[in-house]
Design a protein around this nucleic acid. Structure first.
Lengths: 202, 202
DNA sequence: GTCTATAAATCGATAGAC
DNA sequence: GTCTATCGATTTATAGAC
């Protein structure tokens, strides 16, 4: 059970950690100042190295942005979508997804902001890859809505529009949730679920 | 009743029209390529003049961005908020605001996109002015929600969170409504209102 | 009001030493 | 893996003629 904590990490892991450190620092500065207003020197300062040294870890500034965008589109697909395949009614599965989605938004808040605002600075190839994940997520949400409508559990409303509206509402949380606690984000999720399922009218 | 259409416009109006032309062209290019990826030359090309000539109409590139952001925050305050002061129940007044909001989003689609995504490139003074309008709009929406809850017309849910969620859902429409007809946007507003008032459960 | 020409600063990226 | 040094391209903004 016991392991030597002082054992040097293997080079692959060290390299990966350094990349993650750069991505995290860059996301913070991009979110605050805007991607194109941030220089490689600014990112380098934040991690304590020189600008040129960043090119040992990333081939370009845009690749750093791509890495940020990828985490906030791929992670939700891989971590949240399986909740839609689990057992339960459409309501239950959708509720689980909403809660997981808001928690992810909080945990990767600045990355989500960058992913939402800086899409125009991605290469068209990278943008296409990002959009694949985004549309996949979108479609799966639409599908569970459709399933609920088919079973009579949900009201019949254009599922495409409902899915877009719901996801816009959820994603907007990254714009104002700064510094919230676990209880805060769960409360937001509960309010949104109540609104989504039962509406404003008592 | 008859007026001479060939009569030259007064200089004040001509100047104003030229500014509006520049702002509209800039909004289009900013929305597509991102503010910081667009040069003054790109904007100038779109209106058929040279880059330096733009400085006769705007003192800086940021002032063009500010003009764009101002129209999408000030206009809704001045045109939509009065609907909340009109006669009717909170439900009716809120519904009128939602419909007006979505129509404005469609009419100023690219400007809204720029206003949502390029806030980081505004000077802090301009950002503060923009945020005043935005927060004013936010508070008035929250107030009508609170009024509806007090009267028993709306369910008791944290009105701050509901207002933020509702506005995020509405503003997100600018991201995917491209090329919609009048009927399309009214349909979206109706779906959102049904969702907001009655929820998904039949 | 628009032009040409250019100043002045910045930025992404590369070369090569250690 | 990080450094110093620097290239080359681009950008905002200005000066001054027409």
């Amino acid at each position: 059970m016991q392991e030597d904590d002082a054992e040097p990490l293997n080079p692959k892991t060290r390299r990966h950690l350094r990349r993650a450190e750069i991505v995290t620092a860059a996301a913070q500065i991009f979110a605050k100042n805007g991607y194109s207003n941030v220089g490689m020197r600014d990112i380098a300062d934040a991690v304590g190295i020189r600008g040129a040294s960043l090119y040992h870890h990333f081939p370009s500034k845009e690749e750093i942005l791509f890495a940020i965008c990828l985490t906030v589109t791929r992670e939700p697909v891989e971590e949240n979508l399986p909740l839609l395949d689990a057992a339960g009614t459409p309501s239950e599965r959708l509720a689980n997804l909403v809660r997981a989605h808001v928690r992810h938004l909080r945990g990767r808040r600045v990355e989500h902001l960058v992913g939402l605002h800086e899409r125009a600075s991605l290469t068209s190839e990278h943008l296409a890859e990002i959009d694949e994940y985004r549309q996949c997520y979108n479609h799966r949400v639409r599908d569970v809505l459709t399933a609920g409508m088919r079973s009579g559990e949900f009201r019949e409303l254009n599922p495409k529009v409902v899915a877009l509206g719901m996801l816009d509402m959820l994603n907007g949380v990254s714009g104002w949730i700064r510094g919230a606690s676990d209880d805060d984000v769960d409360e937001v999720a509960d309010i949104y679920l109540r609104l989504l399922f039962d509406g404003l009218r008592p």
